[in-house]
Design a protein around this nucleic acid. Structure first.
Lengths: 329, 329
DNA sequence: TTGAAAGCGCTAACAT
DNA sequence: ATGTTAGCGCTTTCAA
């Protein structure tokens, strides 16, 4: 710990007030004499004085800290966190990250936990629904921006990928190759990511004049093993393999690849695969897999920008759809 | 902000002390009556009371916060961060993450930055050398554990993968397949990861009776484009392709794959590839790539355990080598 | 132009 | 078995 403001005041033979004013750049406003300023600044440098941020936070009831709650630190969220951290730091804010593993109960815990740490705002990839969201006592009292998953209504701020359009483009591309039989492997049904991606899928089929078949849609969860099981279900029903499968997340794709590898890799010569989320390694697979890359950087920057506006400029929250990028293969 | 301890005391019609004791689990020690305990606990739950951690930190001069400085949040470090976060939280600690992108200057900035936030300890994947490390004024005054990269000497605590053995096993495996011509594509030369991996490579060759050829070793950096360039160098010298290439990190492997894909993917039918670091997608590449998976979970847990021991039990730092796992393909 | 003092929410030594 | 009180380091109102 470096020396305290009081120590510094004593050595400079002035009051705490004066030191505080100088340190916080309010010398002009309070007309502290040049020489007093100088004296304090020199001593501050000499003793490497840094105001104790804990005391400051307690007094100001502002911690210059923003909480980030996400399901995991995989490629996409890892990148979001990385960029958010850097963007925030440049603006003098600290990000603290907490991981839910997609458990609602964990999310509740973490929200309380972060709130107790006096975060000024929260950026959140939530498992809650609208009801749960508005019932949460912490959420009610704190600026919140959702990322990744949005909730209905114009009274909640969010920055998410344009999942519907992304999926629409992806599925349409395939349809235009003449493929009609496209199975949908999805994640957690109630999340907007799932809802919007399914919407895009349906819309693409409709626009291409292809009938929608409920039987071809499965949504059990985002884990690798979910992808594995859903793939299994498809191949057990259609022995010769379907024309195509869409996976709604990279983890589900992993499950699919695992299943086909364990069983009959040749299947992927017949079955075309497309996926939401991208990964550089996809470039090097045997099977060409078309994907959609979410713009993690843009999402992070925008989310911070809006949060910053709320905290420091009394701005309103807003809702932002970020275009993902189709990666043809 | 939730209600304060004082509020709670007022509602329970007891003093702050009593509430504090009950909340902090010292009821027995101070023989608070069962009914008082009950009363307070019920009210605490009812009002969702969480002690203000800023105030607590100020009073105790402990922030219950540990800084984590790493180069990026990729797969390996992302996993380390994830596990560290969860482990720490269970012990009542908060992790704050900062990203250097492998720039020494950024690292210095971040160290100062975190220090001003009163972190109790620092877990650090450093770019510093021994000299720089001991000269740093912040480092001198704070418990520090290195991860990923170690520094020489027994006066610094660290938890890192056993890079030498990992590489040794990897290279030996290949040698035993009868392959003798193995090129080494490495990262930032001065880091222990590079030094130890090169050591393992040399030792494996020696033990297999294969001569070491300086010409076959390149180490320019850990970026994807470094991997690309180093691969290019090899293939431009050896038109028909070398027998094998070892890449010292997954990013370098990506560079290699990119080069071979852009040029002549057939090359990988001749050239065997092995890599430090693993990725699930490797299972699905055409070319079977043997890899070494670092035990991110173990590294994170151990690093926290040691740090926790230092902070709360006056234990000494220690040095821990964590065994990575060979993944045959 | 500067200082005194209150108070942010909590813990713990000391009292009762 | 529980209460009183000082004080952690800082900012800010009010006073001088």
């Amino acid at each position: 710990m470096s020396i305290s403001l009081e120590d510094l005041a004593r050595r400079a033979k002035v009051s705490k007030t004066t030191v505080s004013l100088v340190i916080n750049g309010k010398s002009e406003e309070y007309r502290i004499s040049k020489e007093t300023q100088k004296k304090i600044q020199v001593l501050a440098k000499e003793y490497n004085f840094k105001p104790n941020s804990t005391a400051r936070a307690l007094r100001l009831k502002k911690s210059l800290t923003i909480g980030l709650i996400i399901p995991y630190l995989n490629r996409h969220f890892g990148r979001v966190a990385e960029v958010l951290e850097q963007t925030a730091r440049e603006a003098g804010y600290q990000i603290i990250i907490a991981i839910t593993d997609n458990f609602l109960e964990t999310e509740y815990d973490l929200i309380n936990n972060l709130a107790a740490r006096n975060i000024d705002g929260l950026i959140l990839a939530t498992m809650m629904n609208r009801d749960q969201y508005f019932k949460n006592p912490v959420i009610k009292k704190m600026p919140v921006m959702l990322i990744d998953r949005r909730l209905e209504g114009d009274d909640i701020g969010w920055v998410v990928s344009d999942d519907e359009t992304g999926t629409y483009d992806l599925v349409s591309t395939l349809c235009k190759e003449g493929i009609q039989d496209i199975h949908f492997i999805g994640g957690i049904q109630k999340l907007s990511t799932s809802i919007d991606r399914l919407k895009g899928y349906k819309k693409a089929l409709r626009d291409q004049g292809i009938g929608y078949d409920q039987q071809k849609v499965q949504q059990t969860g985002y884990a690798v093993k979910d992808g594995y099981e859903m793939t299994k279900n498809i191949f057990q029903k259609i022995k010769q393999g379907p024309q195509a499968i869409f996976t709604s997340a990279i983890t589900l794709l992993e499950g699919l690849l695992q299943y086909t590898k364990e069983h009959d890799s040749e299947m992927l010569n017949i079955t075309r695969v497309i996926t939401y989320d991208d990964h550089p390694m996809l470039d090097y697979l045997q099977t060409p897999i078309i994907s959609v890359r979410q713009n993690a950087e843009e999402i992070a920057k925008k989310a911070f920008e809006v949060m910053h506006g709320i905290l420091e400029q009394n701005k309103e929250f807003s809702q932002e759809l970020i275009k993902p990028k189709l990666i043809l293969r």
